[in-house]
Amino acid sequence: MLRTTATRTAYRLLALVSFALGVVGAFLPLMPTTCFMLVAVWAASKSSPRFAAWIRQHPRFGPPLAAWERERAIPRHAKRLAVLMLGLSMGMLALSPMSPIVKLAVIVLLMGIAAWIVTRPEPRAFPTFTFTSQTLSPRAMNSFQRRL
């Protein structure tokens, strides 16, 4: 029992710290947001499903997380920002007084990350539903909705 409690507490702490870092990243241009939110949702799913559901339903953080979980997609604006920041990081690294071999290795790694980000699909638009008796009626639904 102690191990389970300690494990859940560790996951909950990781979720809270990741969420806090993600919120900070929403306001600071050089700090990522979505990756911290992904870690927060993953850790919260293991320790507090209610907190994980709250993050997924958050109006600001929820849609990118849903797109990633649903189809492993990254929105176009996020791709552009990520590639821009990676490019700036590569430029600053190239000007730094580090060993040329280390610089080259890190720049190649960052280029690989940028290529991976660019090759991810963009999220498709999914219809939103309001559940009323009229919209749940098969006659009121179009063929796409009936298949869901």
Rank of each mutant, 00 (worst) to 15 (best):
S89C: 15
P64E: 12
S47L: 12
S89H: 14
T34D: 12
A15G: 02
F19I: 01
A78E: 14
M31S: 12
A125E: 08
L110W: 01
W68M: 05
K103W: 04
A26G: 11
L86F: 14
V102F: 09
S133G: 01
F129T: 05
A82C: 10
H77I: 14
L104K: 03
S143R: 11
E122A: 00
A115E: 03
S96E: 08
A40L: 08
T7L: 14
F51W: 10
P75K: 00
L81Y: 06
A140G: 01
M92K: 02
M98P: 05
P63T: 06
S133N: 03
L86A: 12
L30H: 00
A40E: 04
M37S: 01
V106G: 00
P64S: 11
R139F: 15
L110N: 01
A52C: 14
A66I: 15
T9R: 07
L21I: 01
L14A: 14
A6N: 12
T4M: 08
T119L: 10
V83A: 09
E71V: 11
G22S: 14
P123M: 05
L148S: 11
L65C: 13
G87H: 10
A78C: 10
P32Q: 00
R8D: 09
P138R: 04
A66E: 15
M31Q: 12
A73L: 09
P64D: 12
S133L: 07
A53Y: 00
T135Y: 03
R146I: 08
R8F: 10
Q57A: 15
A115C: 00
M98N: 05
T5S: 14
